[in-house]
């Protein structure tokens, strides 16, 4: 614990949870029927985060490459599931494509970020790699899912128009250019907005946490900037990667549209 940090007791945390009761009362009074979800949210967040806290403590105490790699894979799998879970469209092989994309973007960015920029020792030190990966995945999955959802919707609904482009002599890259531009834009906008308003509208969560835990604001800012830049890089690359993958599936190597590889998910 750094100097100046005020340790929280579990009672303090429980007190904050009690405040959620206020929201519960509002829900009851207005018949929003959210009180059960709120309660479940409180319980789930507590159990999940405490479990992670203990798991992280154990992993940090036993820094091994294979253990770090395993934890990173499990985190990435969970992020892939979350990214695809709410999508309105699915594409054959989509899970593998999205997973591989996140491994190559968020995973590599986290390792490079902690090894090169943070200077972790050993280079794979889980204390740096895992939280960094978590930040990158959390943002990357949002971007990836926005991008993929927009792209698949366009590829499915404009399949005839894309075929017209191909019929007139477009390569598959030319035929997919506009849908890809729109989709990647949509995936990247949240992180661009986050950079635009950082420090003006809100203090980013990680920085807030560090300051509360006793860090000097300027030190916290440096870390936050590093994280923001890594997030922007890995989210952009994840959007591009998943877009390239989806286009390659929806328009095959012979530049034929394959609408049967896309499916609308029933809601």
């Amino acid at each position: 614990m750094p100097e100046g940090a005020l340790a929280l007791s579990l009672y303090d945390v429980a007190g904050a949870a009690l405040l959620v009761l206020v929201a519960g009362v509002v829900s009851l009074r207005l018949r929003l029927k959210l009180e059960a979800s709120l309660a479940l949210g409180v319980v789930r967040a507590s159990v999940q985060l405490l479990a992670v806290g203990y798991a992280l403590t154990w992993i940090f105490d036993h820094p091994a490459l294979w253990l770090t790699a395993l934890a990173m894979l499990v985190m990435t799998l969970a992020a892939t599931r979350a990214a695809l879970g709410r999508a309105g469209w699915t594409i054959e092989g989509g899970f593998a494509g999205a997973f591989l994309t996140l491994v190559l973007t968020a995973g590599l960015t986290a390792l490079v970020g902690s090894a090169v920029f943070v200077g972790a020792d050993p280079w794979y030190a889980p204390r740096y790699a895992l939280p960094l990966l978590g930040m990158l995945l959390g943002n990357g999955l949002t971007g990836l899912s926005l991008c993929l959802d927009s792209l698949l919707e366009q590829l499915a609904e404009d399949a005839e128009l894309i075929e017209v482009e191909l019929a007139l002599g477009a390569s598959r890259r030319e035929a997919a250019r506009e849908p890809v531009q729109r989709a990647v834009r949509r995936g990247i906008i949240p992180i661009v907005n986050a950079m635009m308003v950082a420090g003006i509208v809100s203090l980013p969560g990680m920085m807030t946490g560090q300051i509360l835990a006793g860090a000097e604001p300027v030190e916290a800012v440096k870390y936050q900037l590093l994280i923001l830049f890594l997030i922007a890089a890995s989210t952009s690359l994840a959007c591009l990667g998943v877009a390239a993958f989806a286009v390659a599936r929806a328009i095959d190597a012979d530049a034929c549209v394959r609408p049967n590889r896309l499916r609308a998910r029933e809601r």
Binding site: E160, A167, G169, A255
Partner: peptide, 14 residues
């Protein structure tokens, strides 16, 4: 494919 399709060009019904 692209150059083939410029020589053998489909005009779809719709």
């Amino acid at each position: 494919r692209p150059r083939w399709r410029r020589r053998v060009t489909l005009v779809a019904q719709r």
